[in-house]
Design a protein around this nucleic acid. Sequence first.
DNA 1: CAGAGATATCGACAGACATCGAAGCAGTGG
DNA 2: CCACTGCTTCGATGTCTGTCGATATCTCTG
Lengths: 122, 122
Amino acid sequence: MSKSSSSLADLPVLQDEPVPCCPPITAGELSVEDSEKMAAMFKALADPVRLRLFSKIASHPGGEACVCDIQDVGVSQPTVSHHLRKLREAGLLTSQRRGTWVYYTVAPSVVAGMAAMLDLRG
Amino acid sequence: MSKSSSSLADLPVLQDEPVPCCPPITAGELSVEDSEKMAAMFKALADPVRLRLFSKIASHPGGEACVCDIQDVGVSQPTVSHHLRKLREAGLLTSQRRGTWVYYTVAPSVVAGMAAMLDLRG
DNA sequence: CAGAGATATCGACAGACATCGAAGCAGTGG
DNA sequence: CCACTGCTTCGATGTCTGTCGATATCTCTG
């Protein structure tokens, strides 16, 4: 169709910029603001279905997978879509439409940021 | 107090034993069982208040702190207690009474397990 | 033992969340 | 232009969770 309507394609991206976000949790008390940011990320992974979707994507070559490849996790397709959206909104995944299919990709720097935060050693 | 007295003492262990739990998320699809275990841990950190309590403890010397030292997070005392219990039930903290006070300690191996799971590289 | 301080548990409630079916939107192909 | 497939959005619903005040438990002290 004519112009690209606002959907999926032109979402607030969050592509893959380096997001340091938060220091290791041993580095001192988390600010209220940081704790809210981090909590949102952990919340995104705090569901078995999302965790399985995420692991399916992360373990695909290139950390990328089509929805059609991963949607067999025991819940309805709308529910899968809902969970993928949550993961995307948390910045852990990005999505991209290619023809008929939509591909979701892991955002490595964001995930690395979470891991870094859990680095004890202090 | 008829039943339901599952208090602190007779919890299903989870004390501090090394819990490898789960492989890195890139290592293949998570099993349903593993995804539930991990989701429970992430859920424990998926709240701003818990995250701040946890960071306060983790950043204390020895990764240990008295409740009285950390309970100033903007919610009531019962709520603090509730959150600490959640963290303990998830295996992220252990608790120990010393005289009048109760000390909570970070369970390093469990936290390390979560961090390891978020290790991309595949 | 009584009293006081530190934590934990209980019971209630409002808001958040996972889930579903139905409907909508976007490409593909006849 | 229409049917078809893949995915998202919508609206409803039951369950879970964070929060509080009240109260119970534990421990030290007088």
